[in-house]
Design a protein around this nucleic acid. Structure first.
Length: 194
DNA sequence: GTAATGATAGCCT
DNA sequence: GGCTATCATTACT
């Protein structure tokens, strides 16, 4: 993969901005990962956000500095990965919902099952967590230090990705806030956009 | 193709 | 004690 002209993304911005910008970025965890094709934004003044009720033991990382991981257990089963954003202490994050696998396909299949189709390896937040080997120990870790690597496409780079926007999935509050973002035409989305 | 369902554990009221 | 930022499987249309 090229290392230039890519650069680390800026996480010090509102969650919905970071979520949109991350579409097309590349995420690797211990060398395993690919292109981010689906994200969701969760901000502090957002009833659907874990940060809405203020800091707790679980969401502590969301109130830390931006550019770090927030890892939580979903439905008692899955580990889901968020990128903390906004200024430190604000309590905002971006959920990584789907990735187009590019590197470490073998390790993804080991973790997810040999029979899984490539496009389903990381099509959903729980699947991303399993395929990339996300564990709770990564909670609060910097995203610019091992095992994480994140690269964003430079603005000037040829065609900017066409980004779709729609309502978030699996929530019951603030359903009307269209803070789900996806790469147009991607086969690796967890669900189609309308 | 969509719909229903169980698994499973930590969080918060 | 109720709910959940989900997934895989099964049973349908």
């Amino acid at each position: 993969m090229r290392t230039r002209p890519w650069h680390p993304p800026d996480f010090d911005a509102p969650a919905h901005e970071v979520a949109r910008r991350l579409i097309g970025a590349v995420l690797l965890v211990d060398g395993v990962g690919g292109r981010i094709v689906e994200t969701e934004a969760y901000d502090r003044e957002d009833p659907a956000s874990h940060a809405f009720a203020g800091p707790t033991e679980r969401n502590r990382a969301m109130f830390g500095p931006p550019g770090r991981a927030y890892v939580y257990r979903s439905y008692g089963i899955h580990w889901c990965l968020n990128f903390v954003c906004r200024e430190a202490g604000h309590g905002a994050g971006v959920l990584i919902r789907a990735i187009e696998p590019l590197q470490g396909l073998d390790r993804m299949r080991e973790r997810r099952g040999e029979r899984i189709a490539d496009k389903l390896l990381c099509a959903g937040p729980g699947r991303v967590g399993q395929a990339l080997g996300i564990v709770h120990a990564f909670n609060g870790h910097r995203l610019d230090a091992p095992p994480f690597q994140v690269f964003s496409p430079v603005e000037a780079d040829a065609e900017p990705p066409q980004v779709l926007q729609g309502p978030r999935i699996g929530i019951s509050k603030a359903v009307e806030m269209p803070w789900r973002f996806g790469l147009a035409g991607s086969a690796c989305l967890s669900r189609a956009f309308r």
